[in-house]
Design a protein around this nucleic acid. Structure first.
Lengths: 332, 332
DNA sequence: CTGAAAGCGCTTACAG
DNA sequence: CTGAAAGCGCTTACAG
């Protein structure tokens, strides 16, 4: 049975050695004979001793915590994207004895993050979404706190891990053009998110490569969740789009509903494609063509990179993960 | 501009007083003249000094972190429910200078949580979902770590915050019976989650109160996300259900899709109701009748209760939050 | 290879 | 009301 909390002193006393030695046995640093080392480890194991992370933190000026900054804005919190990232981050971190603390940030309010940093609660931060003018990025750079972004940054100095949205959107667009659809629409939220600019770039690039011009009146990048989507969809229909590409699954869900109300059937009268095949869309009828990213992998990768930053230098400053285009009923 | 990290010693020296006094000025504990107090605070303010949370933690044996245990099981991570809880928890915690660290637990694997506790990384824990036989609950009780559950527990000793699922489901069911629907179906996942048992109880209670028997062949409580839902829906149709109540929105989305494939129109040929009016369903066509809980409020309340537990005793051991029934197109 | 000692930045009896 | 000192549980030069 468990006694009260043991300390390194208790075990030193028990073993008739100094606590210095115990500490070294545990950390594996400093010269120590294999023999004593084994003895200490054996005792620790059997006594169920666990070092106090706080004390170690104070001595080494480390917390063994990393922060994950997720968007606290209304429409964004819900996205399964961040949950899946979180899953990857937590899983990777736990294996290295790190923990992850959550902090909500907004495009123009990073006060929670500031608190976290000035209170010394974390050794580094993963930024879950990058903005065109990113306060968090600026703040962390200034404070010299290691951080990595999920999603691209304009600043090449920033360590970033991202899916290759430019090429992903380019390939998806290319495939759809190749299928003979000529009036492709693109609909998404603010270009203030860098990821949206990248998607737009891919969309344009694919058109160029196919030797055609993207159609301006079919591109909307200022859609608010639930607000003006209906109006936009109606314009797209009026402007004779033959295929709508949605920049995220939440938007896609709205679009599908709107089309249903308008009695426009998918894919017969309108093709639809989306990003991320979240479960919402995966089981939709008809199934929706989409890009597929391994978001949990992305989370793990970002965490791995951050831990590298904390320990020394990361292997790469900018790392792009793959994607797949998954063709389904909705674009047939 | 910021110099290097300041300590309590620096400011004591600067002010020609002892660090004891500085500490007291900051904490507000111990006798200290209002005058010196003001002086210290003024200096701190202007110098931008922030105490080191780690050091304080070591001295007071506190971390100023709380844990939030969320289900790491596949189908569950995605639910917006937990994100919204998290939002509430983080918001409340941040105001009190606490931070929240995430830990993933599974029905039969709480190793991440164990690590968190034995490493002394948190002062208390919020359990996001309760199981019929809850390992986390047992573990935390044994370790004497303060915790509160979101969702009900079988154990009356446990501090719990929950929506009133029994009465919520009872009222929803009652309303539907009152509308003249006679063959109500109930479909949900495992009764291993206490919340599902509670919903079932409400369903049964409402029938009793109306003087009718619940129809056994229309009740399915072992539905897996995405797996056997289709088969279940077909059985419900065959068994002539006239209204399907879904225990969560993910299930409801599947049900709606299946009905669409089967060319059964809602609400003409089948009524549908769900729990939580998440955005997915809110904008569905037709809009779905559902229960409405304020999940962010629930998160805040659970955090408030936990902080009470950590400081002293909570005001109430079991707290039930309200709900509303929101009637929409789908049950017309 | 091992240990005594100082130190990480706070808090808090204890004594004045 | 204020301060010197010990202590929270570790780590790590420094000396042997």
């Amino acid at each position: 049975m468990k006694e009260k909390k043991q300390t390194i002193d208790d075990i030193a006393e028990e073993l008739k050695i100094s606590k210095t030695t115990v500490s070294r046995a545990i950390s594996g640093k400093g010269r120590i004979s294999e023999e004593t080392r084994a003895k200490v480890m054996a005792y620790i194991e059997k006594a169920g001793y666990k070092p106090n992370a706080i004390a170690r933190g104070l001595a080494k000026n480390r917390t063994y915590n990393i922060g994950f900054a997720v968007p606290g804005d209304y429409g964004l919190v819900d996205l399964p994207f961040f949950q899946n990232c979180l899953w990857g981050i937590c899983t990777y971190a736990a294996e290295r004895d790190y923990d992850v603390v959550i902090t909500m940030v907004r495009e123009n309010d990073i006060s929670q993050l500031e608190r976290l940093i000035t209170n010394n609660k974390v050794d580094g931060v993963i930024i879950g979404r990058t903005y065109e003018n990113d306060l968090a990025e600026k703040f962390l750079t200034e404070k010299k706190i290691p951080f990595v972004t999920i999603g691209s940054s304009r600043n090449d100095e920033v360590i970033q891990v991202d899916n290759d949205h430019v090429n992903a959107c380019k390939e998806l667009t290319g495939v759809l053009l190749g299928k003979g659809y000529k009036r492709l629409a693109l609909i998404g939220s603010s270009l203030g998110y860098i990821v949206n600019s990248n998607r737009l770039k891919g969309f344009v690039d694919a058109h160029k490569e196919a030797g055609v011009e993207p159609i301006k009146e079919l591109v909307y990048t200022d859609v608010e969740y639930g607000a003006n989507i209906d109006a936009v969809v109606e314009k797209l229909v009026k402007n004779k789009a033959d295929c709508i590409i949605c920049m995220d699954d939440a938007i896609c869900a709205y679009v599908l509903n709107r089309l249903k109300v308008m009695k426009i059937s998918v894919p017969d009268q309108m093709k639809v494609a989306s990003f991320y095949n979240s479960s919402t869309l995966e089981y939709n009828e008809p199934a929706i063509t989409s890009l597929n990213f391994d978001v949990r992998e992305l989370g793990m990768e970002s965490c791995k990179t951050l831990l590298q930053c904390i320990k020394h230098e990361p292997e790469t400053r900018k790392r792009l993960l793959g994607f797949e285009v998954v063709l389904k009923e909705s674009t047939k």
